[in-house]
Write a protein that binds this DNA or RNA. Structure first.
Lengths: 223, 223, 223, 223
DNA sequence: GATGAATGAGATTTCATTCAT
DNA sequence: CATGAATGAAATCTCATTCAT
């Protein structure tokens, strides 16, 4: 089932050989991007790394930008799909359990190929300007929304959309920033715990924002 | 007091006129960056916009990257300084009050010149790779840490550094992402309230993830 | 009767199907040439337009240039043949009648597919450089020469070859240039009349260009 | 007095050095065009021939096409100016005298650098498509029109514009085609005479298309 | 110091042509 | 014969940077 043409694709590979070439180019792009970064990654270099000629590259991708967008799309698509898949078995779980599982999954994904994640993450705004690729962000948003919606009446926030925005943005940012700035946190189980606390505290019905003095006996911080 | 030379500066302007030229160039850089983006911003274009020759530009800045880094540093330096200044009158305030004030300030800064903030934000990783500019992140971190430290014994988190990392990252990400993706939230007072709830809920000693009775009949909200 | 191979042909199509393919390619070439111009017309594009693969194109034509030359030859061959055919019934006609008929025919041909005529016309010098295709110019020349020769003793010019050159060049240029620059003239019957006057005035025995008083009493025509 | 920017110019040279560079590039373009033709003439090759870098070329000309157009414009401007200058002393002359002088001048110009004339001539349609350069054709037209207008009442044609179109097109085509196909004619004084006869015969008041007796013996030349 | 003309390596992209399937 | 994926030389053009004036 060949993909249909898009701003990031030129010709859909029809034969096996083409598909292989196409894949090789995308893989090579990831490698070169990781090694050299976006600016320094030239299409000739990528083609060479893929073991094909530049001509072949331009047969399947309309431009350097298109090529990178295609990779980014592939990446995002997988990420979102994985996330969705990860959500399925959590449907019946308590929120606290599900939340921890999801955070662990996000961290796992980020750790898989941190450098590539990094580079692609930085590329996103550029691609977004071209008007591409928000599909995946939206889909992620919808998935989380669907997950939260049935439980929402029992939770504190009033505005479901805003709550989803806040949760998705927060968890994503924490995991992502940790990769770059505090890789040690990624190994630290308490990091997951803290993010979970943050998210669950935000959702739970008790008034959260009121600074309350502890009393002497009020020691129990159970989470 | 002329700045000392750095990887982002070539020579320190000694005379007033030089300082003016230097500023003109930085201002022009910001304008061009906003208008054309980083890639399309050429040094010739910037020099023209600043009303000086390329030669002059290279008298003060060693390279395009240095120029942009200088702008970024200036920007970050101001942002951190402003933040620090904003913190001073909040020293004695309850956390809930201070938190809301700080969130409002962060949003205010982001809204001032969203496009420039955006562009510079995207440039940060690139500059970070050159090993520059983490000074300001660190300083911001220390400032927040110093603000939180005295109250920390009364708060839930055990790891002060991690808590600071989480708070700074979260608030920054939410405000920043809102600029791009949900500018409507920036006008919405409840957005501030939600962020405050998120942050304060994270800090307060109460158990956060514990099922709470809602009614007498023990309607458990599973989280 | 298959054509023999030439610098513009690779192999002679033997079967009907081949002939059809060959024609389809030539037709497609004309279409693409008209639509995109010579530079922008790529062989892949032409093959696609013809509904065949590039490979097939190169089976019949040795190169892009060969392909275009073949089209040009076909075109010129037809034009000259048509012209020749048009001349036959004019054999016995008075020169003035024949001339007008011929001019009308030339205009008619040019108007048929002005854009294609235009493009091919511009391509001629390029092809001429490769030493091809003068055959048709020469043949046209001979045809006109043969038409004029029997009446030449009654006409003014002394040098038949030069007269033919002048007539052919003039009529061709006027009709061709009119297509591009003054298409309105093509609809204008007086345009035909003027060209006829030009040509016939050139041929007729009366001294035309002598700005000399003919007789003492003659009304001097200052030219 | 620097030229103002146009589709064929990028930056106006302000210093002497620039002007020299600019001229060198145009001269080199002519040389390379003559040697290699338009297609084969690469901008790198031209820059090299001019003894400057490609960068300099693109500082003054926005594209290969712009460069060639600039050369073409320069060439046409000179040709038209020369033609105009040549016309001045002919103002009071009888038409027949002026016509011969003008034809000789056109031929002289064409012979000067036949190959360059050839190449530029072939390039004209391409440039015309970009909407450039008809200024000179129009100016030539107006000049000839102005020359003919005062005498027009004594001449045969009714439509001055059409007459000018016909004369200009015819003379230009004959001279031009002769360069390529019959260079021997350019040396032949009778060729000038024939063109003059053609043109003057077209203009003179006598009915041209009427059968005229040649001798007393009544050998009617039917035209 | 200031100027801006000059540099030229190098990036992206095209397209005529080949040849394995 | 047909196909169309693959090739890769080469073309156009940009832009950070230098340096003579």
């Amino acid at each position: 089932m060949p993909r249909r043409p898009s701003p990031s694709r030129r010709r859909a590979p029809r034969q096996e050989r083409s598909q292989a070439t196409c894949d090789a180019i995308l893989t090579a792009t990831a490698r070169v991007l990781v090694k050299d970064g976006y600016e320094a990654a030239s299409t000739n270099r990528i083609a060479q790394e893929a073991g094909v000629s530049v001509g072949s590259l331009y047969q399947y991708f309309p431009s350097k930008e298109g090529l990178v967008t295609a990779l980014l799309e592939q990446h995002r698509a997988r990420a979102v799909a994985d996330f969705e898949a990860g959500l399925v078995p959590l449907a019946g779980q308590p929120l606290a359990v599900a939340m921890r599982a999801l955070i662990r999954q996000v961290i796992a994904v980020k750790r898989e190929n941190p450098r590539l994640n990094q580079v692609l993450h930085e590329l996103m705004p550029r691609m977004r300007e071209r008007g591409l690729l928000d599909v995946y962000s939206q889909r992620l948003f919808r998935v989380v929304r669907a997950f939260l919606a049935p439980r929402f009446q029992d939770l504190r926030p009033q505005n479901l959309d805003m709550a989803v925005f806040i949760l998705v943005t927060t968890v994503e940012a924490l995991c992502h920033t940790a990769v770059t700035e505090r890789p040690d946190y990624l190994e630290d189980e308490s990091f997951v715990e803290e993010i979970a606390t943050l998210a669950l505290g935000y959702l739970r019905p008790e008034p959260a924002a009121v600074p309350v003095r502890r009393t002497a006996r009020e020691r129990t911080v159970r989470m």
